[in-house]
């Protein structure tokens, strides 16, 4: 090869921050890991990526029947199917990326023990693979909006949808990385994650509005959920309901805090993964 060599310094573990430059130089590997995760997920399936659309679609139909029709859950300013579908899409992305990212380091331990690359690539590519699923599911949702009689504020959509996706991404990366590092050390978290995700499903405004407009202490606590803001903002273009800025702000802060803490914990344990895994 005629390329000039790259100089690498190997030193004791005392790095203070992530080496984002290095991460960038490994972008191709990042791409390959994501590509592999997507490929492997739908190998030997007939419907393939359509499952990403079918899951929220069927869940929406079931919840519409039981919660919307039978229980008559009130979703002010937004038809119930749109309410449930929008919540399910974002939640599916969040829960699958947190779960997959959490398991990713343990699953890829054989690679970690043999080859060096920035470890962050592994949980990040899991999240990215789920993001591709989100895009596919979103297309079905957009198609659904065309046929469902609901008025959409285009300006709000341009502002709030990207914001909602960004917030879900921030929360997913933060929690996912934190769990990935924890799981390398304590395998217990494998059991914790699925349980917590199930509980969180009902503590997030996915299939019914969690808050009732009365600003009780409980509502502030529920707003600590990073997905609270993401899902609420995502619905703004389709609803006439007003959102509470304080609760949104709490949720956004919690998202970014989880990102900071998650990445920091990951960085601290990253160097010793090969010894622990």
């Amino acid at each position: 090869m005629n390329e000039p060599y790259t100089e690498t310094i190997i030193e004791p573990a005392n790095r203070l921050s992530f080496n984002f430059k290095e991460l960038w130089s490994y972008r191709e590997l990042f791409y390959f890991f994501t590509w592999r995760d997507i490929k492997v997920k739908y190998k030997q399936t007939v419907l393939g990526v359509f499952w990403v659309m079918l899951q929220p679609l069927f869940m929406m139909l079931i919840f519409t029947f039981f919660f919307g029709q039978r229980l008559g859950v009130k979703t002010e300013g937004i038809p119930y199917p749109v309410f449930a579908f929008s919540g399910l899409i974002l939640w599916n992305f969040f829960s699958s990326s947190v779960t997959n990212a959490g398991n990713s380091m343990v699953l890829n331990a054989p690679i970690i023990k043999k080859i060096y690359f920035p470890r962050l690539i592994i949980p990040l590519s899991s999240v990215l693979a789920s993001l591709v699923d989100l895009v596919v599911a979103l297309m079905l949702f957009i198609l659904f909006l065309f046929f469902y009689p609901v008025t959409i504020n285009a300006l709000e959509l341009v502002i709030f949808w990207p914001l909602a996706f960004a917030l879900s991404l921030v929360g997913a990366v933060g929690l996912g990385c934190w769990l990935a590092a924890l799981m390398i050390k304590y395998r217990d978290f494998r059991f914790v994650v699925s349980f917590v995700m199930q509980v969180a499903f009902f503590l997030t405004p996915i299939v019914y509005p969690v808050s009732r407009g009365s600003l009780s202490v409980l509502e502030y606590i529920l707003a600590l959920n990073p997905m609270y803001a993401a899902i609420t903002l995502f619905r703004i273009p389709m609803t006439t309901d007003v959102v509470d800025p304080i609760l949104i702000a709490i949720s956004i802060c919690s998202s970014f805090l989880s990102l900071l803490l998650g990445l920091n914990y990951f960085r601290k344990t990253e160097l010793f993964f090969a010894d622990l895994a």
Binding site: I10, K114, L271, F272
Partner: peptide
């Protein structure tokens, strides 16, 4: 091969290192 960090000291590598132990990884 940078799988584990040293406790002390410093290594400068000017080029790409590969090990035949990595055969089939991934």
């Amino acid at each position: 091969s940078r799988i584990t960090p040293p406790t002390n000291g410093r290594i400068t590598v000017r080029g790409r290192i590969a090990s035949l132990l990595e055969v089939g990884t991934g």
